[in-house]
Design a binder for these strands. Structure first.
Lengths: 315, 315
DNA sequence: CGACTTTTATGTCCAGGACAAAACAAGGCG
DNA sequence: CGCCTTGTTTTGTCCTGGACATAAAAGTCG
């Protein structure tokens, strides 16, 4: 996306005594929470929260703590809560609610997954990569994706939300997994495979791990996956589908991606694409309730994607 | 950034006789041109352009033609023009200006590079990958990066600017090159290499090809490159440098990244990082005039990066 | 011609209001 | 009691018109 909003002119984060960083301007809120500044301002009107300080110029400066609350609120919203129920609640209450929502999925995770999580917590760059590579070899690609990569991503995402791990630690993991999946896809892919699947995310959706997992699996099953990177505008997508002779457009939606925008995008896409081209939507954000768009196939998990591919091949 | 607000049936894209689409709401402008709605509205005040219709509710609806103009304007701005000079000019004039700006640097390019450009124009997914892979094998990594990857990226960027190739075509190329560089980095990298280099971009900077090129080269020369993905906030970067025992932080800045934000980010980083940790800044955006930040080493091109690494190793 | 100062251009933020679509609640009828 | 229809509240997005800091350009002086 060419025109993503740039960092503001003056320095947002400022050191304070504790080594933490001071209040952040509204622009940073958008980046850090995914909530638009308009909505945050409206909440201020309606609920009295957040309650930012002001700089000398009258611009809002949000204390770190309120940003943390907003992040939790965003998470709860995407879990189905309405703003009225969560905006303005104290931080600890929100934390408890998030903890309830994301029950202890970690407890039930397999040992191998837990061990990788430890590596991530330690920030052990090579440890993460080695562990993942070893698991891939041991389990084989399909099991690796289903039993390791997918649950691990979910757990890491939750841990990040809970403030349990740092951004850079999540990045170390994401990059490592992306590398490994990419390599697996490359070695599995056949350029003349069938069907031809175009893989991308809607504009605004930056999470691509799910897409890479799907790519690896589908390529293994003989499809020709063409990845055009995240955030391809609808018009470009239609053009690409035509020029590249695409059978299926596969999209990945994360939970962070607003349902509204997702539905609108899918509906528009369905209208613009030829009927012969199928649309598959997967990812955590795709199995939310109201996302029923006619002519779009929803794939709640990797297994569903494999199934869909089998059915397609049968025709 | 957040939801496209769209009524189920009637709002944005409406087919008309030509197969084109009808007026689009302001939200679509942001996605399609990368210009924020606030800026577009201000231009309407100040220059009388764009001049959208209104729907029954008073909301703006931009005719397709004006959207096209805005897209060209955006390109001209990123090429250095000021809004006053371009906003409101007729469509054909803008087209001419864009053509003039991106004169044919392509003419002087080597034949191999031209051939890849043709593949990109054709949208030949596998052709691009095969051509790049073959060139890498023939030239070896250092020459491939310096003589093929770098100039090719520049040419593709210009062609995109000119409207000569589509976004999805640029993406095909970027993904292919990223894959190839990634693989090269992986096979070259040693986890216990020295120095330990943390690679990322400032928040707001999404271009990473330059970083990947540098990574491949530096890894080949024995460094341990740790890539944490683009747009790592300064605070996280400092944390990561500490936990990962980093010697050098390498940043990539594109021309699109505003100089002021870049300088601010670098200054802040220099303040927050321990003195022992070096900061290297590379990419097209790094050799602009006023970017002299004390304690930051600027690397105008890949060769300079190699040189810097040699000097570091000598100490 | 170069460093400094003034002016203009430009992007971002603000306040407070309006409105439609979505979510929710309530009532009516099989 | 369940399901559909209808009224009410909630919520997100857009609007107008204005203020202001900073980047860029123009002007000034040594």
């Amino acid at each position: 996306m060419r025109g993503t909003r740039q960092a503001p002119g003056h320095l947002p984060p400022r050191e304070d005594a504790t080594g933490e960083f001071g209040p952040v301007p509204v622009t940073a809120i958008e980046q850090e929470t995914g909530l638009s500044k308009e909505v945050v301002r409206k909440w201020e009107d309606r609920f009295g929260f957040p309650h930012p300080h002001r700089d000398s110029q009258g611009n809002r400066l949000y204390p770190r703590e309120q940003v943390a609350s907003l992040r939790l609120i965003q998470r709860l919203l995407s879990a189905g809560y309405r703003p009225r129920m969560v905006v303005g609640r104290p931080l600890d209450v929100l934390e408890q609610m998030v903890a309830d929502v994301t029950a202890d999925a970690e407890a039930g995770a397999p040992d191998e997954v837990k061990r990788v999580l430890d590596d991530i917590r330690q920030g052990d760059h090579t440890g993460i990569r080695n562990a993942l590579t070893a698991l891939l070899r041991r389990q084989g690609l399909p099991r690796f994706v289903k039993e390791t990569a997918a649950p691990l991503s979910a757990l890491v995402g939750e841990a990040w939300l809970r403030g349990d791990i740092h951004v850079f630690q999540e990045r170390l993991f994401s990059e490592a997994l992306a590398d490994i999946l990419r390599e697996a896809s490359l070695s599995a892919s056949s350029s003349d495979g069938h069907p031809r699947i175009l893989m991308t995310t809607p504009p605004g959706e930056t999470h691509i791990l799910g897409l890479r997992m799907a790519e690896a699996i589908l390529a293994l099953d003989g499809a020709c996956c063409i990845n055009v990177g995240p955030q391809l505008p609808a018009a470009e997508l239609v053009l690409a589908a035509d020029r590249l002779d695409i059978d299926i457009v596969a999209l990945s939606l994360s939970l962070a991606f607003p349902e509204r925008a997702a539905a609108a995008f899918l509906r528009e896409l369905r209208k613009l694409l030829p009927e012969a081209v199928e649309i598959w939507a997967g990812g955590m954000g795709a199995n939310r309730g109201a996302l029923a768009v006619p002519g779009v196939r929803f794939l709640p998990d990797i297994t569903a994607a494999e199934e869909a591919l089998k059915q397609f091949a049968a025709r």
